[in-house]
Design a protein around this nucleic acid. Sequence first.
DNA 1: CAGCAAGGTATTGCCATCCGATACGGCTGC
DNA 2: GCAGCCGTATCGGATGGCAATACCTTGCTG
Lengths: 263, 263
Amino acid sequence: MPGESPPEDPAPGTDPLFVQSLARGMGVLESFKGAEGALSLNQIATRAGLTRSAAQRLVHTFRKLGYLRMAEDGRGFRLDLPILDLTHDYLRLNPLVRRANPILLELRRNVRERVDLSLFDGQRMVYAARMQSKRETFFATLVGNSVPTVCTSGGWAVLAMLPQAEVDAILAQADFRQLTPRTITDPAVIRDQIALTRQNGHALATEQILMGEVALGVAIPDSSGRPVAAIHIAASLAEWEPEEFRRRIAPLAAEAVRSIVAG
Amino acid sequence: MPGESPPEDPAPGTDPLFVQSLARGMGVLESFKGAEGALSLNQIATRAGLTRSAAQRLVHTFRKLGYLRMAEDGRGFRLDLPILDLTHDYLRLNPLVRRANPILLELRRNVRERVDLSLFDGQRMVYAARMQSKRETFFATLVGNSVPTVCTSGGWAVLAMLPQAEVDAILAQADFRQLTPRTITDPAVIRDQIALTRQNGHALATEQILMGEVALGVAIPDSSGRPVAAIHIAASLAEWEPEEFRRRIAPLAAEAVRSIVAG
DNA sequence: CAGCAAGGTATTGCCATCCGATACGGCTGC
DNA sequence: GCAGCCGTATCGGATGGCAATACCTTGCTG
């Protein structure tokens, strides 16, 4: 889903290293993506593009392994606990998350507002960590949650560091949803924001995702200079005037990013 | 790893529904469990009990699917971002987590201390959600992290609701590690704590996992009365006298659990 | 209450697909 | 400059996954 590698195998059945059963199995897990609740075998088969038999076998296997379980009422299946182990290992082993965590904690102590780390994934910014502030309006557990790149401070910060061609590609395919009445949905205006971000070194987004919220984002580049993630600090407009927020917070956020990159 | 189902297939190769390739593939992902960093093909093969060829094929497939990526230095592989999507779906679709989340948030507002939800998984209690308090000493992102059932307030609360036979089984196989100088490692003393918990309806653990921390746990049963999870509220001994903590917090925690179960 | 649809489960024979041994080129550190 | 890892590529053989089909239960519905 992120930038497809151009050298793609043309024929989908001619990769002798590709283990089809495994891909189908992962397709079963992914079929829960849009789901509203437990899924029946037929639903899984349809969503994952499998025959009923295939779905049966794969589900059976996942149940033996613990990754799926039957829903409590005996109708349909759900993801089960061992999934969380994978997440934990992912976060634990991700070098960026590893380096960032103590620094973000420190940052949160200083700013006393909510601090997030999100990872760039094309159209999405995926939350990897959240350091909470005192008052909280949302789930703490939105690890794995994601928001559109094009309407968040962190996303703008990433876009500002990306080559123009990639920015164009992302904007061209973006789905501009109106998350709040003030969400910017005009690509031209977003380009302005990106330009502004390039000048400032950080992005400021007001009420783009949630009314009453202001957020400041700074991108994190990898060693080659390509942006791979962002930190953002979010606060309430009831307590901050946006410019004042920017003045106070931006230097701290920038400093935190410097520490992360240096580590 | 959690309680094996007794009706096990005796011959491991005679289950016609079992998709071996898928199981091996998941084994590759699980091989990152104890890892310290990226894993090479040989390491994966060894850890997962595969031939090098098998590891190669499975890793290759996971890379195409996005779940694994090559480490930045080109040596070894790491879990990649799509893993988080699975977690997110798991948490989103888990009925218990769903019902519990708003109630835990409310609870946190009232007690102004850290509130956790953890899921019972045999020897472990696995964190599913954390509502932070103001000061924080640890990663916010320990979703998927786990602690031994036998040394946490939540674990004791679960054990207190479990049939005696299961308690015996868990204690018999438990690995009593000394996480702090005050961690209880004597099964007999733990049994006392469990008995106490049965009387009180909640468990109180002081400095079992972290020095200076007191935690109160209440188990959450499913519709059949079997405990499946626990909430715990953790606070600092610098601010609370344990008995006072219990008196103030226990009723609120119990009330929260009632709401979750009723929902 | 009969009947039907949809749920999960079980069986079977065919052949595609996965299997493991082996070989290759590049990089690192002796 | 050699030894030992790394990730990658190839290939013939048979294992193991494949889809179709049938089975049993449950719950809805006419």
